[in-house]
Amino acid sequence: MAGGRPRAVVADDSHFMRSVISDMLEEGGIDVVAQARNGREAVEAVGREDPDVVTMDVEMPELDGIEATERIMAEHPTPVLMLSAHTDEDADVTFEALDRGAVDFFRKPGGEVSMEMSRLKDQLVEIVTSVAEVDVGGATGHSAGGVTRGTASPSAAEPSGETSYAANPTLIVGSSTGGPKMVEQVLSDLPLAADCRVLIVQHMPDGFTGRFAERIDARSDYDVREATDGARIGGGEALVAAGDSHMAVKNYRNGRLRVKLTDDAPVNSVRPAVDVTMRTAADVVDDPLVGVILTGMGEDGADGIRRIKAAGGHTLAQDEATSAVYGMPRRAVETGCVDDVLPIDEVANGILDTITTEVSS
């Protein structure tokens, strides 16, 4: 890209969708250098054109989006954005594509496709541009693309003697582009003994957050579920903000949080917004409070970090080297209210450091 217009390959088995997506990207300042009717053509186009980004349909003939993504990451690593329909099956396949190396996904609209895609054009162009800037070359557990799980060392948070955790800590994690695997890693590295109440706000559309919660639940020791209006959690439990709803903390009593879901106007152009959850938590939680901002585009979470810090909480942000998109973390850091900036492998231990007290043996 080198400062010029991003170059994209558009893969979709529908000629109509290929045309609509390509036109929107071109109008938004992205050069579409090739179109592919299936996964095989997508792999070939990536090898031939060396694009900055690929938009990949999930279901395609000959070679589907998962297999094509896996081959691209193995043969010619290139940032891939999955375009997924709003179905349970596509949600499962989309998360599998993220496991194979895709950076993020964008939900395909249903109904009157041309009208709905036109309305979502700015969002699509923004996320394609951000994904195009992700470095996926030589992906390892320490890079932005292809995060491994369970890399944190418990001993890092327990330097000597015995340790005890502060009572009733609350953790709020916010993320966007590139965030799903990062969130999974942090939660998988977080020991149940810390007894946190965890609220997760990942910018993700309705229909996917339930599957996302199930994935984290399977990969961590915490009991994780999608938030519902009025849901309560105690220690060792986590809620994932439901797509297209803000998750506000309604009250906090006796170590238990209660949330409410609202369809209030988007904040920072997104719903759910990290700022809403962090701000309301800062207003009502009077036990240890920790706010964490992970990879993502935009500025959501920056004001929330300010609120948590002003309320006496502790704040962390993912570092640039391990962030797929260093937008949200950068804006959080620029507030001057972030206590620690850490690589993804160290975020869980950074959280534990804030709620751990050492007891001499």
Rank of each mutant, 00 (worst) to 15 (best):
M1E: 12
A2V: 11
G3L: 13
S19K: 15
V20W: 14
G29E: 07
G29K: 01
G29S: 05
V32S: 07
A36T: 04
A42I: 10
E44V: 14
E44D: 15
V46W: 08
V46I: 07
E49Q: 15
D50F: 14
P51L: 08
P51I: 03
P51V: 11
P61K: 09
L63G: 04
T69E: 03
E70C: 10
M73W: 03
H76S: 15
M82H: 08
S84F: 08
D88K: 14
E96G: 10
R100Y: 14
G101P: 03
A102Q: 03
V103R: 01
D104K: 02
R107Y: 04
K108R: 04
G111P: 03
S114N: 12
S118H: 15
K121A: 14
Q123L: 11
Q123R: 14
Q123M: 09
Q123H: 11
L124W: 00
E126N: 08
E126H: 04
E126S: 09
I127V: 12
V128H: 01
S130E: 04
E133H: 13
D135E: 07
D135H: 06
H142R: 15
G146K: 04
G146E: 06
T148P: 00
R149D: 07
G150P: 00
A152F: 12
S153W: 15
S153N: 15
A156C: 10
A156K: 15
E158L: 12
G161K: 11
S164D: 12
Y165K: 11
L171G: 04
I172N: 00
S175I: 13
S176L: 04
S176K: 01
T177S: 02
G178F: 00
D189K: 02
D189R: 07
R197N: 10
M204I: 01
M204S: 06
G207A: 13
F208K: 08
T209K: 05
R211Q: 15
R211S: 15
F212S: 02
E214V: 06
D217R: 06
R219Q: 15
D221W: 13
Y222F: 15
D223M: 10
V224R: 01
R225L: 00
A231I: 02
R232V: 10
A238S: 06
A238C: 04
L239Y: 04
A242Y: 05
G243M: 08
S245D: 13
V249P: 09
Y252L: 08
N254A: 15
T262M: 09
D263M: 12
A265I: 04
R271Y: 13
R271F: 10
P272L: 06
V276E: 08
T280K: 12
T280P: 05
V284N: 04
V285L: 12
L289E: 02
V290E: 05
I293N: 02
L294P: 02
D300L: 04
G301P: 02
D303V: 14
G304L: 05
A310F: 13
G313N: 05
Q318I: 06
Q318V: 06
D319M: 08
A321G: 07
A332Q: 05
V333F: 03
E334V: 01
T335N: 06
G336Y: 03
C337I: 01
V338T: 00
D339S: 05
D339E: 07
I344H: 00
L352G: 02
V359G: 07
S360M: 09
